[in-house]
């Protein structure tokens, strides 16, 4: 690896600054600041209700923070709608997987690839997608066939080659999580937010997800990983941010965080409540 690529792989990409999110009387996020770098897995830990999903909602544009800013490589994301944030390179999965019922697994991936085809945003003006598609122009048909082939290739690389023709309605919970992850990877994100991607999975599926996460890291993606399975989280994360009651209470390497009395307190305190 050259010095230049090493530098690129450790560059700050996502910058979360002083973010607060208030819902009525609940301060779900309280002045949270951290950064994520390209090519790292940043674990996000915290007891139930700590604000982890809210943090992802704020970063991905689902919710607008009541204070603070989020930016990607210097470009502000705060206030951008979800699809705009995605087209800038930040995508996510959901605590409850979102499936595209009515499509097959392959078609679900192809939807993600279609957005990619047009610079990360879909649809382009009617002349570029709707009309060629409706008239069935040879160019558009070829492009769609290519999307299908690429979807198959992606499924194969995620170990899901056998699933391409399955209806998404027929998937088991663990398969839904894997498909959602493969779909998110298909848009080649700069930052990938994974909300409890291991919950509800069997050990084989856990290993599959962790393999995909490590591969994404190697490809230079900044992966933010929310997970209650602390052992797995600490094993895959390069750094960890810990939230409790909306505040960042710790940040550091997995071993530092695991040994931090404040963190231990937060988890034990939570269990005693």
């Amino acid at each position: 690896m050259t010095a230049a690529t090493t530098a690129a792989l450790t560059a700050t990409t996502l910058d979360v600054r002083g973010v607060s999110m208030r819902f009525g009387g609940v301060l779900a996020l309280d002045d949270v600041t951290f950064t994520a770098r390209t090519g790292e897995v940043l674990g996000v830990m915290g007891p139930n209700g700590a604000g982890k999903t809210t943090l992802f909602n704020v970063i991905s544009g689902v919710q607008r923070p009541t204070a603070g800013t989020v930016s990607l490589g210097g470009v502000p994301l705060t206030g951008c709608p979800v699809d705009r944030v995605a087209s800038l390179g930040v995508t996510r999965t959901f605590q409850t997987p979102v499936m595209f019922w009515g499509l097959t697994v392959r078609e679900s991936i192809a939807v993600a690839l279609a957005a990619r085809e047009f610079g990360g945003s879909y649809p382009p003006p009617p002349l570029r997608a709707l009309l060629p598609a409706g008239f069935g122009t040879p160019g558009r048909r070829r492009a769609d066939a290519v999307l299908n082939d690429r979807a198959d290739a992606l499924l194969a690389s995620a170990g899901l080659a056998h699933m391409g023709d399955r209806a998404t309605e027929s998937l088991a919970f663990g398969e839904e999580r894997l498909l959602e992850l493969a779909r998110a990877l298909a848009v080649e994100p700069v930052v990938l937010l994974l909300d409890e991607p291991l919950s509800g999975l069997n050990p084989d599926e856990v290993a599959d997800v962790l393999t995909l996460v490590r591969a994404a890291r190697t490809a230079g993606v900044a992966v933010l990983l929310v997970e209650h399975a602390v052992g797995e989280l600490l094993s895959v994360a390069d750094r960890v941010v810990v939230l409790d009651h909306g505040r960042k209470i710790a940040e550091g390497t997995p071993s530092d965080v695991a040994a931090d009395p404040i963190v231990i307190d937060a988890y034990i305190g939570d269990e005693l409540e």
Partner: peptide, 26 residues
């Protein structure tokens, strides 16, 4: 032609899970 193209698939995607599709840039 339209419903079998990537355009039609994306329509189905937003009707099934709008936020999920938006998170992909739709």
């Amino acid at each position: 032609n339209l419903v079998r193209s990537s355009f039609g698939r994306t329509l189905i995607a937003i009707s099934a899970g709008e936020l999920g599709a938006q998170a992909l840039g739709v």
